[in-house]
């Protein structure tokens, strides 16, 4: 194990209440706090823990997005990544395109392991890791809640609907992480200062030979249908009465 690549997405912060623009053209993003996608933070934390258990492992953080995405990569460097690459673009990047970009980076960098969050909390697509593994022609272990590396193999416990499943994969491989894998560390001030000196390279889609096509056109964005406010009951007897009337019990 020599190199781990972690893919990071800049997203609207977890705590921001999302509002849809009245004209239906998208969600309001002006002046909204942006952060590292929480699942990607867990992905990075796992890479750092593997690095700290091993010797001479490099952790590379990569992202795709607008120039300001450097902020999120600086956060990754402050957490402990050794180096970062931003593939800068103003275009909206769909999961398949993102996978093609990460593949181009993987071919350059030859990582033993690529970590991603299982999904980004903006588009909730849950596709990029699987797509990357497919076109890289390597194993995928999605929704990881435990990752154990031994030599050229990894044993990954996955969170599936029925419980937990364990698979063994040959490296190099793609692992997407779920919530329970770990709790990411807090960044300390001295680490932020140190991160400023770490290398952050900026490259482009052109340089990587990838074009950002539109495969799925978003034609409208709207708020979800609201549920009607219901009734309050005063005690259990009244509750049972209401449920019986509705034919539910």
């Amino acid at each position: 194990m020599q190199k781990i690549m972690v893919c990071i997405k800049r997203v609207v912060d977890y705590n921001v209440r999302i509002r849809v623009k009245p004209d239906g053209s998208g969600v309001m993003l002006d002046g909204v706090k942006m952060s590292v996608n929480p699942f990607d933070e867990i992905a990075l934390e796992e890479a750092l823990r593997i690095k700290e258990r091993g010797t001479n492992i490099e952790v590379l953080a990569v992202s795709i997005g607008v120039a300001d995405t450097q902020q999120q990569l600086r956060t990754a460097l402050a957490m402990g990544a050794d180096r970062a690459i931003l593939v800068q673009t103003d275009a909206a990047v769909e999961p398949l395109t993102a996978a093609q970009i990460f593949l181009a980076l993987a071919k350059k960098e030859s990582p033993d392991l690529i970590f991603l969050g299982k999904q980004a909390i903006d588009d909730d697509a849950n596709q990029t890791g699987q797509m990357l593994a497919a076109i890289w022609q390597r194993p995928q272990a999605t929704y990881a809640s435990k990752v154990e590396i031994s030599g050229e193999k990894a044993s990954v416990t996955r969170e599936v609907d029925a419980g937990l499943e364990t698979i063994e994969i040959d490296l190099p491989a793609v692992v997407t992480v779920d919530l329970r894998l770990n709790e990411p560390r807090y960044v300390k001030l001295p680490d932020i200062m140190k991160a400023k000196k770490k290398p952050l390279d900026v490259t482009s889609l052109d340089a990587l030979g990838v074009s950002a096509g539109v495969l799925l056109r978003t034609v409208k964005t709207e708020p979800p249908a609201q549920r009607q406010k219901g009734v309050m009951v005063k005690d259990v007897a009244e509750l049972v009465d209401v449920l019986k009337k509705k034919g539910l019990i």
């Binding site: 609207v12 969600v27 588009d123 909730d124 979800p224």
Partner: peptide, 9 residues
């Protein structure tokens, strides 16, 4: 999208 807070067509 956005945890069900924005529905896209």
């Amino acid at each position: 999208t956005y945890a069900g807070n924005a529905i896209v067509t």
